[in-house]
């Protein structure tokens, strides 16, 4: 079963994301900031990381940089799920090694199609 790490500091947003992913049959683990996500990712392997950008402690861009340093996550798809539309943030995400940039509010079907595409 495809395993996804969903990272967002907003509990309400996490609930919605997890619901969307679980409805589609994915195995989901949640984290509320980049540091917690990094710690979880080191202990378990995931097929995809779906992360918010603006978070306390460690933001999403920093998380991508950290994950790409780890051998097991060098090629793992990492999608950013964010309200940020600014080009410079998106560029920072791309340069850090993110696989894609999904802007909220997200359409559940389109998000699932994108996940299928990058994990396929």
């Amino acid at each position: 079963m495809t395993k996804i790490l969903a990272v967002d500091d907003s509990a309400s947003m996490r609930q919605m994301v997890v619901f969307t992913l679980q409805s589609a049959g994915y195995d989901v683990v949640e984290a509320s900031d980049g540091q917690k996500a990094l710690d979880i990712a080191k202990g378990t392997s995931f097929d995809l990381v779906l992360s918010d950008v603006n978070m306390p402690v460690m933001d999403g861009i920093e998380l991508v940089k950290e994950l790409r340093q780890i051998e097991a996550y060098k090629y793992t798809p990492i999608l950013m799920l964010t309200t940020e539309t600014a080009g410079d943030k998106k560029m920072a995400g791309k340069n850090a090694g993110a696989t894609g940039w999904v802007v909220k509010p997200f359409n559940p079907d389109k998000l699932l199609a994108t996940i299928k595409k990058v994990t396929g």
């Binding site: 309400s12 609930q15 919605m16 619901f19 409805s23 309200t83 909220k104 509010p105 997200f106 559940p108």
Partner: peptide, 28 residues
């Protein structure tokens, strides 16, 4: 269930954008 899945997304978005923009200038 549908509230979690789709309907809440505009509310979540409106709250998150507002909070993030304010916190972009500092604070938690």
């Amino acid at each position: 269930l549908t509230l979690d899945g789709t309907a809440a997304r505009y509310g979540n978005w409106a709250m998150e954008v507002l909070i993030n923009e304010i916190l972009n200038y500092g604070g938690s």
